[in-house]
Write a protein that binds this DNA or RNA. Sequence first.
DNA 1: TATTGTTATACTCTATAACTATA
DNA 2: TATAGTTATAGAGTATAACAATA
Lengths: 149, 149
Amino acid sequence: MDRSKKDQKAALGGLDDQIGFALRLAQVAVFKDFIAALKMFGLRPTDFSVLAVIAATPGLKQQEVGELLHIQRPNLVIILDQLQARGLIMRGNAPRDRRSYALSLTAEGEALLEGAKIAQGLHENRVDALLEGFDKTMIIAALKRISTL
Amino acid sequence: MDRSKKDQKAALGGLDDQIGFALRLAQVAVFKDFIAALKMFGLRPTDFSVLAVIAATPGLKQQEVGELLHIQRPNLVIILDQLQARGLIMRGNAPRDRRSYALSLTAEGEALLEGAKIAQGLHENRVDALLEGFDKTMIIAALKRISTL
DNA sequence: TATTGTTATACTCTATAACTATA
DNA sequence: TATAGTTATAGAGTATAACAATA
């Protein structure tokens, strides 16, 4: 171990051995890159995830989307308003419940999501390149386990 | 693989294979537990990290603390104001630069940090318990690597 | 001129209470 | 009485510009 690394470790007072500290720094770095990757589509990470979930299961209600992505219902309303104003999603009639909407993507939404997914793949490749020598599948499994805390 | 897990995977539209999505959920879960662990000390994660860094290297300037923890200088001012108002830190005179302060913990700050570090250890143990079967050292190494993105 | 700490401010995210229309 | 979506709002956390004191 070289001197500069030892010094940094001392300077952080044991912080860099904390899983939470390491998680936060990693998450900030990955989101920074992901946000940049989505910028040309006018999407934020949350927008992307909402579109992806609706595309995977058309007909979903707002509450169901919120539960899947851990987005509070009031906050999801704003996000969907914006996506709808851009013509990316539709709030269709739900089969037998006039309180809720059946969400779906427009053709434009499908097209944009397809492009965004390519950008997301390139972003993921950049992360993968850094993880050479690590078992990414195992890392994601560990992260999912941690999420159950 | 059982049916419910397959369904969930489909419903998330591939999102749960994204490193960023997994990172975010894990970070939220860990911070939720960490925030709860620190609550009885009246500290937030950021307060804890600031105290830990100052304790590790007394005499640090505000800017140096900000660089170590990725906290913008204006935001750090507020945090230090609060810690100082509680009598946990001191803004001493810097040796040969009257623009900056030499930061240090008060005796009270040292005592509080010691207690908080114990709580942090218990928190870390809870995470470790979940990670049985995983190589935590390798996971943290991977997270640090990801942070260089 | 450049830097340290500061003030003011704004923007995003997230969280909660209360309303409406339906069930 | 409960639920889905909505509105309004409040609280974190984070970001930038500009100023005073000092280098």
